[in-house]
Design a protein around this nucleic acid. Structure first.
Length: 152
DNA sequence: GCCAACGTTGGC
DNA sequence: GCCAACGTTGGC
């Protein structure tokens, strides 16, 4: 059984179209411990909602799957990277990434406003006030409701 | 651009 | 370990 996740990206930095073009990509630059811990729980074959944040409108734009489980994020010890963190070294990595593979871009975005309107989804971390996590778990029922009911 | 909410840092 | 100050996220 796969587990289900939601991952946020600013489309100006990395969009679902970028992932579609590349077919698969490392998901680097996560610098939040809670998000990192969720990524370390990810297994190959886990399914991911791809979410566009900091844009208009924000929302889920498609699906992807985990194609490589967590491994050290080398950008964390690259001094030329915007994601550099002096605490992280190759011998003692603090930060991790997974690789994700494109599955599908939906015909239209499922906006945050629409998600918030659904009583079935009020327990989602995403729709909670003040939630800023960029990587979060999704329950199986939420996954099925969103991907099979809302999108069909 | 604003700002609420949250996470991190660092003095004590 | 507490908590004020600061930095960041991300919707609006």
């Amino acid at each position: 059984m796969p587990n289900y996740w939601l991952m946020k990206s600013e489309p100006d930095a990395f969009s679902i179209d970028d992932l579609k073009r590349l077919k698969h990509s490392p998901w680097d630059g996560v610098r939040n411990y809670q998000a990192r811990n969720f990524m370390r729980e990810m297994k190959e074959g886990d399914l991911v909602f791809f979410y566009h944040s900091s844009c208009t409108p924000a929302g889920i734009v498609g699906t992807a799957k985990v194609c490589k489980s967590a491994y050290p994020d080398h950008t964390s010890w690259d001094k030329n990277s915007a994601y550099y963190d002096a605490k992280s070294t190759p011998d003692s990595p603090h930060w991790f990434m997974v690789d994700v593979e494109f599955i599908e871009k939906w015909p239209s975005i499922l906006t945050l406003a629409e998600l918030k309107q659904n009583p079935e989804l009020t327990e989602m971390l995403l729709t909670k006030k003040g939630s800023r996590l960029s990587v979060m778990p999704i329950t199986q029922s939420e996954w099925e409701y969103i991907s099979t009911i809302l999108k069909k």
